[in-house]
Design a protein around this nucleic acid. Structure first.
Lengths: 213, 213, 213, 213
DNA sequence: AATGAATGAGTGTTCATTCAT
DNA sequence: TATGAATGAACACTCATTCAT
């Protein structure tokens, strides 16, 4: 009703939101290039085009910036995963979608992939205060997949494997493939990688005929 | 006839070798706990029970200590892998051996697993000077496996997959499983993990009957 | 019309300039007391009344601080030399001015004299990266004098000596005298030292009558 | 009467003396090349072909080694100076001998010259514990010359200058000339330098006719 | 809100000195 | 006597964080 007030509010909020996002983008770039330890607040500030002190108006510490970068990326992936898996008609398509969404996202955001890998390492080492947050994020992605497999086991589409374990398998293979692409450079297309993986996984999940004696 | 001379020599060499190994152990512990950047030479020295300067009598820099830790672990694993795979009668057993050796080694040396994961992350980020050395080490492990699969494809024991790609799959699954055990704590036995993985992989590699249309 | 903007600018610049000069003064004191190697950044910071890190906001390294100290002193001396020699009516007065300016400056800035001597030593030993910069500075001072003598030789005011060599003689005597004052403490006045030196040099340069056979 | 005892004694003493001299030579080389601070006991030990600890059997500290190097060189020069000046028939020859001995010695022992210059700098800075020892050594050299001039003033060979001040002048010019040779490389012969200096000094010391009003 | 100058704790590395052999 | 492994204090330089403007 008081148009000025909401508009003012909005403007400030919009500006603030824009700042936060700029900082996140800049931070993702720097963390991806240098790793957590070697990344400096100066570098992030410069990349974001603000003064160093400004970062502290939006995030209380380097650690928290890092966590925010990680959370933002993970959320985006999760949203896309949920979307695409919902559209899949069969379990096989769902698995394919899982592999594809992750493969494509990381392909398009290699800096974030580096942040992601670094964070996983930090978790294993036990340095990450993000530990829980990040595990939750990862777990949610896996849960989506697990659900799909569970249903497929129910319908007999795949043989009676442990859905959780199978989901992890898909997850590991997806991760390994992406890492290799970044590390070695890509000699194959994302598509062919996806096809290979999906095929192999699917074979492994097939109701076997006398395979295990 | 001059027993003192050879014995002195030997003694010094033994002491030196012992020191080097103590330092490596201490360094592995600290690097595993803190990561490369956060690990301090002071902490390593304290863990080894020597003064900081002493480390520099055996290694010229922190970087080199780190590389030595990594190389030592990788070499040990590689030796065990070669041994065990040589003893395998069938491709399936060879794959099982691969998964088992790595699983057991890392289970028994969780600090080294953390170093290992950290190093892989450093490589992806491009910080590692070890890059080549470490990739070579990893590649050698994978090559061993690739060889096995190649032969199995030749004999028709497994279907006609790309042996290199298949080897990487085994590698990724092995790594993912180990990481999860460390991260989440183990709710299952190593044995059951190994069985599950080997089984799944084996199914995936089986000569399929009409699986892919 | 926006007095704040220019005044702010100016104020910042003034503060920065003041800081730089404070640091230079403090550094000169510490380098003079301890020599380059034994001087610590901590000591310089303390002498300047700032934190250690602050020095690095103004100078990128200890080496550069040192060079700046040296250059600043040499520049000041050179300016005074040029001034005073320009005012001299005769060659004798010019030589007197040379000896006097250096004598008085170093008398008033004994810390800088110590830096100066230390730097010359560093150059002889080949440690100085300042080498060229400092030699150039010294050479410029000598050139001023050499010019004066050249002209005096031309007018017959002094006998036909090599002007360059004669300039170096004046320079060496000036330096030796200053060093001795600092080292031994002064039992004579600067004035009397200057008079003695000028007199001696002048005698040596006089058109001789049958002195050298 | 017990030939073995004295011979043993002697042998030990000879060996010890030899060691001390080797150490001094090695130390002079290293100090000359690196300067006091940058010279390491390791480098000296290596240059002398002994273990680091051995140095401490002969000298209690780096500082003392340095002082010993300095003292040894100064003593040698002093001996030569005394010899050559004793042989001089006239004051002029004596001055020439002074300039020559120093010029030639330093020309042949450039490392020692660097030590010498470094030590003088250290003295001015006040770091040298050698201070007194070294000043005494220098003073003794100057005294020799001063004596000569005193006598020459007495006989009327030179005009009535202060002998001490005149000796210092000779000393300074000698030092300056040597330094320049080392720093710039030599474009002139030692002989011509000596001739120039001796000549100039001699002119300056000549009984003047109406030079100073 | 935004800045960036100032801070000072922290780290890898060196090296004179010691001492058990 | 000679050795050289071990020590640990010292130091240049970095950078996350603060705070006056």
């Amino acid at each position: 009703m008081t148009p000025s007030s909401p508009s003012n509010r909005s403007k400030e909020e919009v500006v603030a939101e824009f700042r936060r996002q700029s900082l996140l983008d800049a931070a993702c770039k720097v963390f991806g290039e240098k790793g957590f330890d070697a990344a400096t607040m100066d570098a992030i500030a410069e990349a974001a085009g603000v003064a160093k002190g400004t970062i502290y108006l939006y995030y209380p510490s380097k650690q928290v910036v890092y966590e925010a970068v990680f959370a933002a990326g993970m959320t985006t992936i999760e949203d896309q995963l949920t979307d695409q898996i919902a559209k899949a008609a069969t379990a096989r398509e769902a698995i394919g979608a899982f592999v594809r969404v992750r493969g494509e996202y990381f392909e398009q955001h290699p800096e974030f992939f580096r942040v992601y890998v670094g964070e996983v390492a930090r978790q294993l080492i036990g340095l990450s205060t993000t530990r829980d947050a990040s595990r939750v994020a990862t777990d949610r992605q896996i849960k989506v997949l697990q659900h799909v497999i569970e249903k497929a086991v129910g319908t007999g589409e795949v043989r009676a494997v442990d859905p959780a374990a199978a989901a992890l398998v898909v997850f590991d293979l997806s991760k390994g493939q992406i890492g290799r692409r970044l590390l070695h450079g890509s000699t194959t297309t994302v598509e062919s990688d996806i096809a290979f993986l999906t095929d192999l996984i699917w074979s492994g999940l097939q109701p076997a005929r006398g395979i295990t004696p």
